[in-house]
Design a protein around this nucleic acid. Structure first.
Lengths: 188, 188
DNA sequence: GCCCCATAAGTTCCTACGTACATAAGGGCG
DNA sequence: CGCCCTTATGTACGTAGGAACTTATGGGGC
């Protein structure tokens, strides 16, 4: 479960309330392309408390409802480290949040881990770039509805994929630059 | 529900089996950043048949299990058009598949629709670019776990967001270029 | 000659997640 | 004065969707 380690990851930096985590998701976490809504965060937090990975203490607030400040337990710290060191399997879809989450919350534990994740992702992306078992639906046009002009449909499909390809390439460029930066930092 | 209109959208181009749609998702559809697995596609297809938006006929295959070829009904055609012409509300997260799906499956019905979607998305992205209610968790470091070096953590968070910002900007550039192209095409 | 894998087309089962609502206190606004 | 927004934490309910299995056939490797 990704959300487990997202929560462990943010709590590794500092103690937060459920509401804080929710705000982070809607704020800077927005660019990660991942975000669950507050109910799921509260649910997951109580589940993590039950599992003994996080603990909380009540933080009294003047006038407003008391907040619970969650923090990692020793077991939670272990679980986070174990996940960060476990092999990373890239997702077939390049825009999936898998890599960004892994890079952020495993990578923050040290440059070696960050480099390993970037390396794995880069190798996967280069290997699978363009080599998709393509199934181009616009190649055969059967005139299902009169509103759809086949030439225009093909045009739009090309434009949409242009966008996707552009992203895929700039993404690979970022991975390569980041890899180089991390290697220099580690003296390799 | 997005998947409803994704399926109506692909079926508008031509008749497909559930398996075909699934292959498209894993193939070129992969770059859209959206993809549900086959069980959900079959479930949705039967639901759409129940709602009367799509119909199927059995296509006997030599040796292999027979396929069901799905196509739009008149009601389905209407539903797709209604959706394509309804106002488009961008998602707060720029990497969400909402825009790409809308651009592809509403936009394929005509340049005016495509332009309207691009226009709305561009305005939203320019307005909300950077103006996030930021909640930077790395600003306060509380030393939850000894493995985490606060300076390094901050570095990794910056790198991860660099990636996100870079995407956001190249995305806006693509939107602007596409807008210009569509306007020229429509003689505006 | 056997086994495993890929293609093809689904079904069963479980759960993660979202929508809408509840509570409660304080502050801004019209 | 009443109304909505923010902070903060949830609950209840419904559903979208994923993992694993099923069935059937043809092809490739050993």
């Amino acid at each position: 479960m990704l959300l487990d380690y997202v929560i462990l990851g943010v709590l590794a930096v500092r103690r937060l309330s459920g509401y804080d985590i929710s705000r982070w998701m809607d704020g800077s976490g927005r660019y990660i392309g991942y975000g669950v809504k507050s109910p799921q965060i509260y649910r997951k937090l109580t589940a993590l408390v039950d599992r003994g990975w996080v603990a909380f203490e009540v933080d009294p607030r003047e006038g407003r409802p008391d907040a619970k400040l969650y923090s990692l337990t020793e077991a939670g710290r272990q679980a986070l480290l174990e996940w960060a060191r476990s092999p990373y399997e890239p997702s077939p879809r390049p825009m999936d949040p898998d890599f960004k989450l892994r890079f952020l919350f495993a990578g923050q534990l040290g440059p070696e881990i960050a480099l390993a994740v970037v390396d794995t992702e880069l190798a996967y992306r280069i290997k699978h770039d363009g080599t998709s078992a393509d199934f181009p639906i616009t190649d055969v046009y059967e005139g299902q509805i009169p509103e759809l002009d086949p030439d225009w449909a093909r045009e739009v499909h090309i434009m949409a994929h242009e966008n996707g390809y552009a992203y895929a390439h700039s993404y690979i460029a970022w991975l390569q630059l980041t890899k180089a930066r991390l290697e220099r930092l580690l003296g390799r």
